[in-house]
Amino acid sequence: MLELHHITKKFNAGTVNEKVALNDVSLRLNDGDFVTVIGGNGAGKSTLMNAIAGVWPLDDGQVIVDGTNITAMPEHKRAKFLGRVFQDPNMGTAADMQIDENLALANRRGKRRGLAWSITAKEREVYKSLLAQLDLGLEDRLTSKVGLLSGGQRQAITLLMASMNKPNLLLLDEHTAALDPKTAAKVLKLTDEIVTQNQLTTLMITHNMKDAITHGNRLIMMHHGRIIFDIAGEEKRKLTVEDLLKKFEECSGAEFASDRALLS
């Protein structure tokens, strides 16, 4: 379970460029919730995820994961609670390291890294079967450098890494935005499978309204650093893109026209 209590994040505070990227945001995710997040460019979606991941300190508010207050925890320490996939396929994997080495790094997230050998033979077998599930032919390329793979393959591996050891929360930041439509659909389908299989509590940012409606059990819309719309269950299932656009207009007022292109 994730709880955000009155989170505020300002960039360049006290200068003419001051930007309140998150403005008193509170949010509560229940176990197993799969929440999609939409909003125009600069709405604060990525900032929300970075706030949870601890990329920088907050100006105000608390982040609580499954009862543990992680607000003051450095990024590498709270990593044990979180699985993350980024928009840029290059960001989630180490390009000059082998596929199995990348998986082994993820497998030790939140554990002590000592002087034991970095991958055991038993692990390799597990990785092989995990990779086979991706159906991308990667199970025979365990020792290939990740840098040689396509963006879609890298995102699939990052997704696998993020879901290892069942993190308390899975954070996906437009993780299909850099892929071609066909690959994006494949990775999205994979996301659904992995989330369902492991019953992961998930926060998924997407720029695609249709995806936001068809995936997950709850949807939130952000605007100017606030959550302006939050819908779940049956109501969400019946949602259409038109509904969303109308809702956006209602909640954000006159700025709708300029943001419309970005949202659809």
């Binding site: 991941a53 990024e75 590498h76 320490k77 990593a79 044990k80 979180l82 993350r84 980024f86 290059n90 960001m91 989630g92 994997t93 180490a94 390009a95 000059d96 390291m97 790094l105 993820a106 030790r108 997230r109 939140g110 554990k111 890294r113 890494m161």
Partner: peptide, 11 residues
């Protein structure tokens, strides 16, 4: 190799 990824993996 990748500072971002390393932190995300708890290093």
């Amino acid at each position: 190799n990748n500072l971002n990824m390393s932190r995300a993996q708890g290093i």
